[in-house]
Design a protein around this nucleic acid. Structure first.
Length: 699
DNA sequence: CATGGGCAAGCA
DNA sequence: TGCTTGCCC
């Protein structure tokens, strides 16, 4: 029978025993041997946080101490998480996780980083495009070399014969079933992705392929490691007939216990007997609604494109005898935690061009033998370690006085884009490095300014006009842009500024020497400001001149030769007439989008091979993707009629027809933003040291 | 004496 | 904003 779970194809990519793989890449001699990763190793040989599959054979699991693991498996290797500032530091795994994300984002625009080693992908468009382009060929079965299909082989067993037989049995029905075709094409694509990950990072992973996040996640876990699993809609009911409630994402904790205890539901299909009203009365409205639908395999949570985390934090527990009782000790640890996040925030600023604006200090203290958890949040105006530490210490002491402290955490979040506007002025204004420039360089810069000052003023006027129609003082805004090019193989020509850490707004006071950061072209001479030329990026003139009415000559003097050349090229091909046309289109777009609150107009230089570059305008934004996009979605429980909705081809959500255009703008903007981020980040990473890492084959 | 460190999101 | 829950390794 036909089971409709919607038209999305959602994938979860999940690295196999990730921390173990990272350690094995560093020390290839670990390959093939039982291995666990522990945090700390003084007390009972540390706590195990990851176990490889060789060690699992011996019954070693997480939640064990290193000691216990040694009892079960005497030859086990216990790799210790690096220690820094007196605490475990997991940055090694975070950057390894980024490598994986970098591979994924090359092949898919809708990637949501769900954890350090997991990502959800919405590949609906990719699959349907492929299927539209080329008729389905059952021979794809030959490319599904590590694919299992639920309902056609036993779960939790990796048996090649069974796998192959089940797969062929399933594919045999493909001719009459478009959903089989779609999933098979998806499977082939995911095989490809996993192979790409393997080749570029050495890491193995598993994947789940289905119609939504919950099912993809579920499927992924059923044939680990190094396998991928397709969960067709028609197999859901059978699977749920024996699937323990707690195996489903979000039901692994207290809610799952409540479902079991209050309803006596032990497997998912037990939930089917309850009506929506039943569930909503026993739980809250939202939870009841979710339970009712998830019991039927329905989950509408969209894959929200996001490659970076929303917060950066560091914390440490001080259990038992280690509880902090002296102010001195408190100062020490908050100093260490502040130091770590300060460093990580600076790095994040480099990689992601954003600034955290909020700092939250969390702490647990003990009063009357009870642990009390509290947190305090502040505006974050500096990344200076001393300031962060001072704020944190004051906040904690104010509450705890002399009470013992068992936990400390510092976390920064509420990021805003740091490009453009006043932040750059801050970097440059106090700079004394102008003196470091050679005479000829100065001259070049001055010529550049003279040549283009009129043009810049005109641009400024246009930009201001465009912005004034949408004045709003909200600090968040929305990304709205005009598509630059649909075809994927078209060439773009662009230049973008990249500020390295010495330019951080929080460090500029002490920055007198500027490091060079040249991306893409490795042998370029050193310069004060880094930049890159890419074949598919965009020129962002306003980043160079954030406030065109208030150009600080010192700023312009600092422009490197390469940038000047690029800028000249750009400005020569740039015509005001062209620009004003684009601004008109832009204005029209903006007036349609009431969610757009604060715009920044940027120039995008586009050039095809053998034809002159052309300019387009892009309005870029500072926004929170979730909150913005969700306002377009259907509110469940409202009585909207089907004809009022239109389906979005990008995220496959039903959108209110009258919001559709706005919604679409969102995606366009998001894609541009993602592209920019990805370019900046990958170039940044390329220059980062990888020397201590080895790329030998993982077992 | 004790998995620990780390993320995201929901709720009031 | 502060607190809790859930999940990852």
């Amino acid at each position: 029978m036909a089971v409709d779970l919607g038209n999305r194809i959602v994938v979860l990519i999940d690295m196999d025993c990730f921390f173990c793989q990272v350690e094995t890449r560093l020390k290839p001699e670990y390959a093939g041997k039982p291995l666990a990763v522990v945090q700390y190793n003084l007390w009972r040989t540390g706590g195990i946080i990851a176990v490889n599959y060789e060690a699992r054979e011996f019954g070693v699991t997480r939640h064990m101490r290193g000691e216990e693991a040694r009892e079960k498996c005497p030859h086990i290797i216990l790799a210790v998480v690096p220690g820094s500032r007196g605490k475990a530091d997991t940055s090694r795994y975070r950057s390894a996780g980024r490598e994986v994300i970098d591979v994924l984002k090359k092949h898919c625009t809708m990637v949501e980083r769900a954890s350090v080693d997991e990502a959800y992908l919405d590949i609906t468009q990719i699959v349907d495009d492929q299927l539209a382009k080329k008729e389905f060929d059952p021979a794809v079965v030959e490319e599904l070399k590590t694919t299992y299909v639920i309902g056609h082989s036993e779960c939790n067993v990796n048996n090649e014969e069974q796998r192959r037989k089940g797969l062929e049995e399933w594919i045999a029905e493909a001719a009459e079933d478009i959903q089989i075709q779609r999933l098979a094409i998806a499977g082939r694509f995911v095989e490809f992705l996993r192979q790409e990950i393997k080749e570029t990072t050495t890491f193995n992973c598993s994947a789940g392929i289905s119609f939504n996040k919950i099912l993809a996640k579920l499927a992924c876990g059923l044939h680990k490691p190094q396998k991928q699993t397709i969960l067709p809609a028609s197999s859901v009911s059978k699977l749920f007939g024996s699937l323990p409630v707690k195996k489903v994402r979000n039901l692994g904790g207290k809610l799952g216990d409540m479902v079991i205890d209050a309803l006596g539901c032990h497997v998912m299909s037990d939930l089917l007997q309850y009506s929506l009203q039943d569930l909503q009365s026993r739980f809250d409205r939202k939870t009841g609604h979710w339970l009712y639908h998830i019991a039927r395999g329905i989950d509408n949570e969209p894959v929200t494109p996001r490659l970076v985390s929303k917060s950066i934090g560091a914390c440490k527990r001080f259990p038992g005898k280690q509880t902090i009782v002296k102010v001195e000790t408190l100062r020490h640890w908050l100093g260490e935690l502040s130091s770590e996040i300060s460093e990580r925030l600076e790095q994040d600023f480099e990689e992601n061009e954003r600034k955290a604006t909020s700092l939250t200090v969390s702490f647990h203290y003990i009063q009357n033998k009870k642990v009390i958890s509290q947190s305090r949040a502040f505006a974050l105006t500096t990344y200076k370690q001393e300031k962060i530490a001072e704020m944190s210490i004051n906040a904690v002491l104010k509450v705890t006085q002399d009470l013992p402290i068992s936990f400390l955490g510092v976390s920064a979040g509420k990021f805003i884009k740091s490009r453009g506007s006043e932040n750059l002025k801050k970097f440059f204004k106090p700079s004394s490095s102008l003196n470091n420039l050679q005479g000829s360089e100065k001259e070049d810069v001055n010529n550049f300014i003279d040549e283009h000052v009129e043009l810049i003023k005109k641009l400024k006027t246009q930009i201001t006009n465009s912005n004034s129609s949408n004045e709003n003082n909200s600090e968040t805004s929305k990304n709205v842009s005009i598509p630059i090019e649909q075809s994927s193989n078209s060439q773009f020509c662009s230049t973008s500024l990249k500020i390295n850490d010495k330019f951080s707004p929080y460090k500029y006071e002490s920055a007198t020497v500027f490091n060079e950061t040249v991306m893409e072209k490795k042998n370029e001479p050193k310069s004060n400001i880094s930049f890159f030329v890419s074949n598919n990026a965009m020129l962002k003139l306003q980043e160079i001149f954030p406030d065109l009415d208030d150009i600080d000559l010192d700023v312009l003097h600092m422009l490197p030769m390469q940038l000047q050349d690029e800028a000249k090229k750009f400005l020569k091909v740039k015509g005001i007439k062209n620009l004003s046309e684009d601004i008109n289109i832009l204005k029209q777009k903006l007036s349609n989008s009431k969610a757009c609150e604060k715009q920044e107009v940027k120039l995008v230089a586009k050039s095809g091979r053998g034809r002159p570059p052309k300019c387009k305008l892009v309005v870029s934004n500072y926004s929170n993707p979730q909150t913005d996009i969700q306002h377009f979605f259907i509110k469940t429980g409202t009585n909207n009629k089907a004809e009022n909705f239109k389906k979005c081809l990008q995220c496959h959500q039903l959108i209110l027809t009258n919001k559709f255009e706005e919604h679409n703008d969102y995606h366009v903007a998001q894609n541009v933003q993602l592209e920019m981020n990805s370019l900046l980040a990958s170039d940044e990473r390329r220059k980062r040291k990888l020397s201590d890492e080895t790329f030998d084959q993982f077992s």
